[in-house]
Design a protein around this nucleic acid. Structure first.
Lengths: 304, 304
DNA sequence: AGCATTCATCAATCGTATCTATGGCTTTTC
DNA sequence: GAAAAGCCATAGATACGATTGATGAATGCT
């Protein structure tokens, strides 16, 4: 295929009209330019320049190729500039997945700050529960995911944002501040993983909850509780996103979930990804960033 | 600036999804691909790929650059193909300058044959008297010129096509087959160079012609003669292009002009130029091509 | 006619692309 | 679980090619 170095030489010759002038412009010695032209002619099998008296002249083919060369060189320049814009966070794209209550609380704050700081970056959201979000990360369909988990995650680099406490949620006039105090009540379960966690917590208290309703929607859940249809547990984030005044909430210490931000691949992250994770960390409710040795959980690697 | 070899490697990695597969497709060893990627990242200052488990994944910047690379590689291919079309006479342009009576006789024959043989080539004419045509050649505004001359031309490669005899042109009933037989008549002069040649010829016969009219147009000249307004000389080509039946023509042996085809620059000519000169030679009235050692006049070089 | 300019050729040096061999890490398999 | 296989990065060696300076030939201007 055509050698771009030679095309650059040909373009310079076309622009400056002579081998010597082209060499000067390219900071080459004159024989280098001659050599490149000769090789380019040999490689293409076409006569590109013709000696004409003291100087040279481009043939029709030479002018054609020089024109194309200019265009190609321009595209190379443009690509380089685009890449620089990317690195300088003046352009690019970041895709974020987050679970609903995060999207209802601190994620929009981070997104707004990010958008203001880097207006050239195309920031996109996607709602996804943690298992789906992790899949999206692994498949490369998102760059950053805000997840919660009760266990460790392997194969991804994660950083803990804060501990999201769990709250017992009851109607206003149902007494009892512990799970076991409501063992005879009807219970409302959330998503599959949340229900599993609820079952585990109740088992630790020595009973199995009677789950009558199931819904992911934390607004609906509170509405059900407000109507005296049952009790449930909800994470603090959900209550921060929406708080029905007609329910009573009681913290359940030690039963919280950890909220993490996760990225795929190895460090260092692309600039836009890195910038977004920092914004998210800064906007999360209780950023542990102040302590130098804050907890970091990564599949294998550990962030410094 | 971006190195196209590395861009080709990046594009292959993007297409095939792994370093190993890309290496296979490029017929490279795997470490070569790794090395190119690493260098490209160092040179651009951007992370382009990220290790992800067993394989790698392109970052946003990597995908952007790979896309641009595909485009640039495509343009390089296209340019190469265009050039090949040029060399194969499937595309291109040739510009021809010729003097009027040549354009009225054999040049259109050559042009038609050329157009039929190479329909992809953009063939253009331009009428120009020899001095102007030679200037156009030197300035590169035309590629081929059909000229006539009485002297040698330097600095251009010329090939003689044929000898164009000069004819004495008189009214039908004016007797006298030599120049001197009409020394007392009124004369009609052609263009500046033709008039100079006429003066020289008459001087050789021992008189100065009384030039009353001057016009380049060989149709007008014959009309003037037909109306008994004077006598003149005309080259055979002009008479072949247009013959007024009411004039008498007498050949003047040894006073002809040589008709040449001229090109600029050094051999070998571009394919289209070469093809056109051959067509012109084949279409010229008395091609001397049959003789192996036909006369060739070139400024310095001599065509084999 | 002499001189300056322009381009091509030649020999030598330096940079760099590619290869083979090797090691670390992850994922899969028995 | 441990072993095996797959995938990528690193290191050192080799060879090709680009660049340079010096030289020569030809042209055009003064």
């Amino acid at each position: 295929m055509l050698d771009v170095t030679r095309l650059r030489v040909l373009a310079a010759v076309a622009r400056h009209g002579s081998v010597t002038a082209a060499a000067e412009a390219l900071h080459y010695a004159q024989p280098s330019v001659s050599h490149h032209l000769a090789r380019l002619e040999a490689e293409t099998g076409s006569r590109l320049v013709q000696r004409s008296g003291r100087g040279i002249r481009l043939t029709e083919a030479g002018r054609l190729l020089a024109d194309r060369a200019e265009e190609i060189l321009g595209r190379l320049d443009a690509a380089e500039e685009e890449l620089a814009a990317h690195a300088g966070l003046r352009a690019g794209r970041v895709r974020l997945a987050a679970f609903p209550s995060a999207l209802g609380t601190f994620v929009p704050v981070a997104a707004a700050a990010f958008d203001e700081a880097y207006p050239g970056i195309d920031l996109r959201f996607r709602e996804a529960e943690p298992p789906a979000a992790i899949d999206l990360l692994r498949r490369g369909e998102v760059d950053v995911a805000v997840i919660f988990t009760h266990e460790d995650v392997t194969g991804l680099r994660t950083e803990e944002l804060f501990e999201d406490e769990t709250y017992l949620v009851t109607p206003l006039d149902w007494a009892g501040d512990g799970l076991a105090d409501h063992r005879g009540r009807r219970w409302i379960g959330g998503c599959e993983r949340c229900r599993a966690e609820l079952l585990r917590a109740c088992a630790a208290e020595g009973f199995t909850p009677d789950i009558r309703f199931t819904t992911d929607d934390y607004v609906a859940v509170q509405q059900l509780v407000a109507r005296n249809l049952g009790v449930t547990t909800l994470p603090g984030l959900a209550l921060a996103a929406h708080r029905n005044e007609r329910v009573r909430v009681v913290p359940l210490p030690g039963r919280g979930r950890r909220v993490l931000v996760a990225v795929a691949g190895e460090a260092p992250d692309p600039p836009a990804t890195r910038a977004l994770t920092e914004m998210i960390r800064a906007s999360s409710p209780r950023p542990p960033a102040a302590e130098p040795g804050h907890r970091v959980t990564a599949g294998r690697a550990t962030l410094p």
